[in-house]
Design a protein around this nucleic acid. Structure first.
Lengths: 194, 194
DNA sequence: CCCGAAATAGGAGATATCTCATATTATTAT
DNA sequence: ATAATAATATGAGATATCTCCTATTTCGGG
């Protein structure tokens, strides 16, 4: 097992290229990207500490590999597949761990899918702001957020302006401050199931 | 292990109620539903032969259970959790199998999520029609389809009418016939990654 | 065979979201 | 420090999609 370290913006896996390792993230963050034929790029999900990378390629001989890019310094264990695949796939503890990880991943994606179809940006953005805010400071990059929530930059701005006009947020220098937590919560709660 | 049989429209698992079994579908089809607070119902996915049901509850103590309803006669194995959970979670062959199943599920959901955000109904419907058509006959129920693709009934109709006007489909008595396979393919191919 | 519920169908207007165009301001590399 | 690049902003018009309404048709149960 090796320890790999990546810098911000470095590609851990390039789209379409099978990785040689199974990674386990110790520290740092990354993004999963997918490119469509027409050039559209979709930010599928975020990766955080304790997530696996490359588990799909461990399990499936044939798989279209998505691109993974570090968004901060990222440190991970890297387990060489050619050497360890067989042993990993026979290790009960590892399999049980991986099963849990995958089941959560599947659940989360299903949730996101369903929510994206069922609710306008207003609700999903409120949820996203609450989830990513640091105290009452929200300062995600707009470009990333609109990739993640799957809306145009223009529309994201539009809804943010609405939030400000309604007094939910207040725009400061280089970030937004949450002014009405409860209002955002009300919008975000609509996403929860009964 | 028991064999359970469900009739069309029967609920295999009711939303919010933890199931007592892990199911493995031998034959038949089902749908996974989720209800939101505001009453909106979302059809999350279809279940087919060789899929598992209840695997989330096997793995997680705390989990909001989604509703699962048979759409045809459905026959499955039912493995009582209270009796077998421990043994299942120590069985390498089973875990490896479940891991593969879950990884495909996660991948599929991620794909659907990303596609739903990136493309209009036109493309997603073309793909859906090609995937569910029996030869050149398409005859899914509109109500189900709009739940699945996450659009309103009205809008689904609208796009179907367009397809007919463009000559891609032709409406017959109680179904649609595919007239221009290639045109639909061109629309559906946009969903594929590069 | 009849009835009520579910499914289909389509009009009309509202809203969410997109595209394109154009400035201005940060950030990064040289 | 400068120039190039990425990110932020905003207007205006187009389109995708929704909601509400109202008929008509189909279908399963008594």
């Amino acid at each position: 097992m090796e320890v790999h370290e990546y810098k911000r913006d470095e590609w851990i896996i390039r789209e379409g290229m099978r990785p040689d390792y199974l990674y386990y993230v110790i520290e740092g963050k990354a993004k999963i990207y997918l490119t469509y034929q027409n050039g559209k790029v979709s930010l599928i999900n975020f990766i955080n500490a304790h997530d696996y990378i490359g588990e799909m390629e461990l399990l499936h001989e044939v798989y279209y590999t998505k691109g993974i890019q570090a968004t901060s310094k990222l440190i991970c264990f890297a387990i060489p597949l050619h050497h360890c695949r067989k042993r990993l796939l026979e290790d009960t503890t590892f399999l049980r761990e991986l099963t849990k990880f995958l089941s959560m991943k599947a659940t989360k994606m299903a949730e996101k899918y369903s929510q994206s179809l069922s609710f306008p940006l207003e609700n999903r953005l409120a949820d996203f702001i609450l989830q990513t805010a640091d105290g009452e400071i929200y300062k995600e990059k707009h470009v990333t957020v609109c990739d993640f929530l799957g809306v145009s930059y223009r529309h994201l701005l539009h809804v943010l302006v609405q939030f400000c006009e309604k007094g939910y947020l207040e725009k400061e220098e280089r970030h937004y401050s949450i002014r009405q937590n409860d209002a955002l919560h009300r919008l975000a709660d609509v996403l929860k199931n009964k």
